[in-house]
């Protein structure tokens, strides 16, 4: 059991939870993730470690309420507990970037910004020059603007509909920055699969190393089932142990999108079960 010590609603669909998990906080590095399970009937879901505080022994997760489990998680409050919480899992990002790196562009899409943020923060803290492009559908779902500003040298915000920041997609902005002569040693793209695919396509002609953080379906997260398998450079990889970061120019994104849709119909039905499960969860907490 881990205890929720802080809850912050970042926007109508994205929630931040800080939980007490000293062992994970001690080891966590940007790019790694945890797996959690809410209760006896619960499923195991992966969430990226958004931030960690080694002194306080806490780690932060940020998630979008998209299905049953994230809805239930979003309904929990400070003082509540999460039954199972395991990590840190996966490979940290930093070693993938190499030692002689001077300037990086971090690109976040929507809730992916929650995962892009710790990347920007840790690289910036290391003294690397960090540009951030954060893209959102519209103004009402913008998150972490101030945090990004503090964790970057240049910060660019785009909205698809132009309701805030610059109008357009992150790929437009990225291309413009590269064309304007900004030299990046690497681009880190985190967001919906199509966005990561198009960022990779944008950087490919310029030969800029591009890391993407993949989000396939997972169960155990320790390499024992292959549910999270992806094709990278024509080879089968397990995202939970070999990743989740991979070279975006080598990833088969269409296959990933296909595999992520396996349970789509079932996921839609789950939302209806939300109310009765919430009651059960509350009951478990009391007893």
């Amino acid at each position: 059991m881990v205890k929720i010590v802080r809850k912050q609603v970042l926007n109508p669909s994205v929630t931040l939870l800080e939980v007490e998990a000293p062992r994970i906080a001690k080891k966590a590095q940007a790019g790694q993730f945890i797996i959690l399970r809410l209760d006896e009937e619960g499923e195991r879901i992966p969430l990226t470690i958004g931030d960690y505080d080694r002194e306080k022994g806490t780690i932060t997760i940020m998630f979008q309420k998209v299905g049953l489990t994230t809805q239930l998680l979003g309904d929990l409050n400070e003082g509540d507990a999460i039954r199972d919480f395991v990590g840190p899992l996966g490979q940290p990002t930093r070693p993938e970037l190499g030692d002689d790196i001077k300037r990086v562009c971090v690109v976040g899409g929507g809730v992916g910004c929650a995962i892009a943020y710790p990347q920007a923060k840790s690289l910036h803290a290391e003294g690397i020059e960090v540009d951030v492009i954060a893209g959102f559908r519209s103004k009402d779902i913008v998150i972490l603007e101030e945090e990004f500003k503090a964790a970057s040298d240049h910060f660019y915000l785009t909205t698809d509909d132009g309701s805030y920041g610059e109008k357009g997609f992150v790929t437009d902005k990225l291309k413009a920055l590269i064309e304007a002569g900004n030299q990046y040693d690497a681009v880190i793209a985190i967001g919906p699969v199509p966005m990561m695919k198009f960022v990779s396509k944008t950087t490919e002609p310029y030969g800029i190393k591009t890391l993407v953080s993949l989000n396939p379906i997972m169960i155990d997260g320790t390499g024992m089932c292959g549910c999270c398998r992806v094709t990278v450079g024509g080879k089968m990889k397990f995202a939970c142990v070999d990743g989740p970061d991979f070279d975006g120019h080598q990833v088969d994104f269409d296959e990933l999108m296909n595999r992520n849709s396996v349970y789509r119909e079932r996921e839609a039905q789950e939302k209806e079960r939300h109310a009765c499960r919430m009651e059960k969860l509350a009951h478990d907490m009391i007893h």
């Binding site: 009937e41 619960g42 499923e43 195991r44 049953l68 489990t69 169960i219 155990d220 024992m224 089932c225 292959g226 549910c227 398998r229 992806v230 094709t231 089968m236 296959e255 296909n258 595999r259 849709s261 396996v262 349970y263 079932r266 996921e267 789950e270 499960r277």
Partner: peptide, 29 residues
């Protein structure tokens, strides 16, 4: 081998045995 509907036996059995996906009330599909 990466089409939807291809499982490793470990994944299939983990969903069923550990996660009780065969039961009505289980969250794991």
């Amino acid at each position: 081998e990466n089409l939807k509907g291809v499982y490793s036996a470990n994944e299939f059995l983990t969903r069923i045995n550990l996660m009780k996906a065969y039961r009505e009330g289980a969250d794991t599909p």
